Amino acid sequence: MPLHVPPAPAPALRTVLTALSSPTAVREARTPSLLRAQGPVAAELPLPVHVLDRVTAEGVSATRLAGWRFLIRSGERAVAAAETMLTPDGWAFSHFFEGPYITSTERALRQAETMPQSYQPRLLSVPGLYMLTLWLHEDCTADGAAGHPAATDLLVPLAPAPPGIAAHRPHRVAELLPVLTHRATPTRLLGSPA
């Protein structure tokens, strides 16, 4: 089924396009693949980036919107990504970057397109585990900038995933969130002060 990519805020897209058209911004980005890109580049597949701050005692995830990520495509593949962030003055370009999460995101999106159900793709960052997941939200009409993972939504860990968590294997939120919460919670050593 097709993915229903939520529309990014127009000012966020404008800041990315402005940065892409700036030789200084591209040169200072330290992204060799973006510097070597031949021909035109395009900002595509805007995905809202949510951060999992904590899970409450009731099992509800506390997430917040951190920004929007755009894949930067040159020819047939993504060569980099651009991040935007919300500032007191509105949306602003943050930075360009490259690395394994670019190809991993593309792979997870292709995988999601073959699923029998339609989803709204988002990214969910789990900073306590240095982990990024593709969050497949069941409500395709929802505001991509708002909400929390529903128990029946899917999380697809992107590579590299933390040890013991298989990358590119879809998990229901209700199954994976408790595992992530347990792993991100510091354990107390026996006999140590509270």
Rank of each mutant, 00 (worst) to 15 (best):
Phe96Tyr: 09
Ser104Val: 03
Phe97Arg: 10
Pro162Lys: 10
Ser125Pro: 01
Leu47Trp: 06
Leu65Cys: 08
Arg73His: 10
Val16Pro: 01
Gln111Ala: 11
Gly39Phe: 02
Ala66Tyr: 07
Cys140Ala: 13
Gly164Leu: 05
Pro163His: 09
Ser125Leu: 10
Ala57Ser: 13
His4Cys: 13
Asp89His: 11
Pro127Phe: 09
Leu34Cys: 02
Ser22Asp: 14
Ile102Arg: 03
Ala29Ile: 00
Gly144His: 06
Val49Phe: 02
His171Arg: 09
Ala108Pro: 02
Ala194Val: 13
Gly144Asn: 00
Ala80Leu: 01
Thr187Tyr: 05
Cys140Val: 13
His50Asn: 06
Glu98His: 13
Pro2Ile: 01
Val41Leu: 03
Tyr119Leu: 06
Leu45Ser: 07
Trp68Gln: 11
Glu28Gln: 11
Arg107Ala: 12
Val49Lys: 00
Phe93Asp: 04
Trp91Met: 03
Ser94Ala: 15
Arg27Pro: 01
Ala25Ile: 00
Ala80Asn: 00
Pro32Cys: 04
Thr87Ala: 01
Gln117Glu: 15
Pro127Leu: 02
Asp139His: 15
Pro157Tyr: 08
His95Gly: 04
Pro9Cys: 12
Pro127Val: 04
Leu177Val: 10
Leu134Glu: 11
Gln120Ser: 11
His4Asn: 13
Ser33Asp: 13
Thr141Arg: 14
Ser22Phe: 04
Arg172Ala: 12
Leu158Thr: 05
Ala66His: 14
Ile72Met: 04
Val55Tyr: 00
Thr133Ile: 02
Pro149Lys: 09
Gly59Val: 02
Ala142Met: 05
Arg172Thr: 11
Ala194Thr: 12
Met85Thr: 14
Met115Arg: 13
Arg27Gln: 12
Ala174Tyr: 04
Gly147Pro: 08
Tyr130Ala: 15
Ala174Pro: 00
Met131Gly: 04
Arg188Thr: 14
Pro160Thr: 07
His168Asn: 14
Leu134Val: 05
Pro11Cys: 15
Arg14His: 13
Asp89Ser: 08
Thr31Ala: 11
Thr114Glu: 15
Ala174Met: 06
Val60Cys: 04
Ala166Met: 10
Glu44Gly: 00
Leu52Met: 01
Val55Ser: 02
Gln120Leu: 03
Arg73Asp: 01
Ala62Val: 15
Ile72Ala: 04
Leu124Tyr: 11
Pro127Met: 01
Thr84Asp: 08
Glu113Met: 07
Ala78His: 11
Leu123Thr: 10
Arg30Ile: 00
Ala146Arg: 15
Leu20Glu: 03
Gly99Ala: 03
Thr63Glu: 01
Pro193Gln: 12
Gly144Ser: 01
His95Leu: 10
Leu35Lys: 07
Arg169Phe: 14
Val26Gln: 03
Arg69Phe: 07
Trp68His: 10
Ala112His: 02
Trp91Leu: 05
Ile102Met: 09
Thr15Val: 08
Ser61Tyr: 00
Val156Ser: 09
Thr87Met: 06
Met115Val: 07
Arg27His: 08
Pro40Met: 10
Glu76Gly: 08
Leu154Ala: 10
Ala146Thr: 13
Val51Gln: 03
Phe70Met: 04
Ala146Leu: 15
Thr84Met: 01
Ala80Ile: 00
Gly99Asn: 03
Ser104Glu: 09
Ala150Trp: 03
Leu86Thr: 08
Ser192Ile: 10
Tyr101Phe: 15
Thr24Gly: 05
Ala12Asp: 07
Pro160Gly: 05
Thr133Leu: 09
Ser33Tyr: 05
Arg54Ser: 12
